[in-house]
Amino acid sequence: MLEQTQFLGMPLKTQKQRRLLVVLYYAVLFGLAVVGLWINKRDWGPLVAQTFVVGGLLGGIRIGGPVKIYEEPILPLDMEGAVQTLNLSGRKRFDSTWSSLDERERGQRDMAHYTAYRILRWSFGLFVLGYFGVSAFAPAWLADKTLFLLWLFLLYVLSLPQAVVLWTEPEGPAGELVEVRAGAR
């Protein structure tokens, strides 16, 4: 289910390293939350435009992250097609960026989403309770920050299954990540 043994300079060969990446990712989101709630900024447009980039940083929903993308990516103008790439002989490209998930990976993907669904059910309830709790004390401040909080929660929702995959990916033999399949990065 993983495509990379290294991400943003961080090695991901052991389970401990992958869990550290998850903790760091959410620590950065938390830091962003603290900064965003502290400063008085009205225009979050440029940040919101990067929602899927930030939410999909760990992969899964976009190419480029450590977790393999869940479904075949739909590229504009059929950029992988024979005409666009001038690959008229039909030979497979060496640097093909996507290979379909095998049965184990599909099972792992589905299991991660089941776990993420359960976590989301509880965390959404806590989010709503916390929101109403704070609104009893500082309603005007909270109304001002609602958009930003919703955006943060959206990032959390987008990233949760990938975080579960990284957290639960087992150790391979001798503590090393199992070699990625031929044809994938």
Binding site: Y114, L120, P161
Partner: peptide
């Protein structure tokens, strides 16, 4: 596996 696949599909909708 059916349970997990259903949750994968439902997660995308939700």
């Amino acid at each position: 596996s059916r349970r997990d696949r259903a949750h994968y599909q439902a997660y995308q909708v939700v």
